Simulated assay, not measured.
Amino acid sequence: MKPTAFADELPKGIQRSRSLPDPALGALWDSIVLDERIKKQLLSQAVLNFTMRPKVDRSVIPLHGVILLVGPPGTGKTSLARGLAHRTAQAFPRSGFRLLEVEPHTLTSSAMGKTQRAVSELFSQSIAEAAALGPTVVLLDEVETLAADRSKMSLEANPVDIHRATDAVLVQLDLLAERFSNLLFLATSNFPEAVDSAFTSRCDLVLQVPLPDREACRRILSDCLTGLAKTYPAIGRLVDGSTIARAAEECVGLDGRAIRKTVANALAVDPETAMDPSRLSLEAIVFSARAAKTSRVGGLSRK
């Protein structure tokens, strides 16, 4: 019989299961423009999980096999985590790595006790079964959904069940850390202040994924324009233009996703450019970047 983690119908809470390495995920890793020192630290921590944990007792180095990526929305945390899973598997050829992606929102329920049971079953059965078969990386996106800060919960929102769900996550992390040294959790959060402190205390590394600085903005713009030039060769002229520095300066303060959307907005600056994207100009990108920052500031001020 096929184990649950590999069944044709994925168990509740598992959105996707895939074998590693996966070149498509490698492309995600390369697409995230981030200080190489940060990427190196991240990859090194993930590799250490699979080299040292099987050999060193947890009483010496209490690794839980959990890495938490935090930062503003759009900075590429989820893509970075998926890419990290690929790069980690690459470091261990022929080891049979697998990536499980958890969908936390399918586990929550307004019915008393159901969320706690769903969380416990996910960790103790589905994830445990996968880890029993070989090296496993688990992506916990929006981890605050599963490990909410219990000290900040509203008394009007069924706090007992939410408390118990967070308790279940913590208990299962401890149990899995004891049983499986070939298991690594990659968690992400846009709101680290909403994550329970007991969860973050179990993380082997909490890494801040920052907004791109000026040079990173330039690299993101260059990558985006170079990609467009494969379809519209005339756009390639913008990559080498000296004014790209001005466009990058205008993008400072935006996240990577917003910068790429800024280019899309610039392509729609007028009907002529929309009909013929080869007409794209850096001036249009500068205009769109300014508009994007203005709309974001305005949106925040209205909240």
Rank of each mutant, 00 (worst) to 15 (best):
F191R: 09
P192M: 05
R260T: 15
V33T: 14
S124N: 12
L107E: 05
S124R: 09
T88S: 11
L205K: 12
R87N: 14
T231F: 01
R16S: 15
D35C: 07
G134F: 05
L254I: 13
K114P: 00
V239K: 06
W29Q: 05
Q172P: 10
K40N: 13
L42Y: 07
I67Y: 04
R164F: 08
K77N: 14
L63H: 00
S222W: 06
I259K: 01
S288T: 13
D213I: 02
L211M: 15
L173M: 15
N265H: 06
A111Q: 10
V269G: 00
V286M: 13
V206C: 14
T4W: 10
T4R: 15
E121W: 03
K12A: 07
S278Q: 06
P210H: 06
L139H: 00
L20D: 05
S222P: 11
A198E: 02
F97L: 14
A130T: 01
T243C: 11
F50Q: 02
A284P: 00
N182A: 08
G256V: 06
L107T: 05
P72L: 14
N158F: 09
S59D: 11
L133D: 05
E250I: 01
V160P: 06
V56L: 09
F287G: 03
T226A: 13
L254Y: 11
A187C: 15
R296V: 03
I235S: 03
P212R: 13
F185G: 00
R82L: 15
T51V: 09
S281Y: 07
I32P: 00
Q41K: 07
L300I: 13
T136C: 08
V56A: 08
C203S: 13
R37G: 12
P212L: 15
K261Y: 09
A165I: 02
G256R: 07
S197A: 15
V160M: 13
A24I: 13
S120G: 10
L282P: 02
L69V: 08
A132D: 07
S222A: 12
R246G: 09
T51E: 07
C251P: 00
V209D: 05
D141H: 09
S120W: 02
V160E: 15
L43S: 06
P104C: 12
L170S: 06
D276S: 04
E283W: 10
V70C: 10
R218T: 01
G71T: 12
G298E: 15
M52R: 02
F123C: 00
S44R: 03
I14Q: 04
F123A: 01
L186C: 05
F185P: 01
I235T: 00
A234Q: 09
F6H: 08
L205N: 11
V171W: 01
S17M: 13
S31P: 03
R219P: 12
D22W: 04
R237P: 02
M275N: 04
E36G: 11
V143D: 07
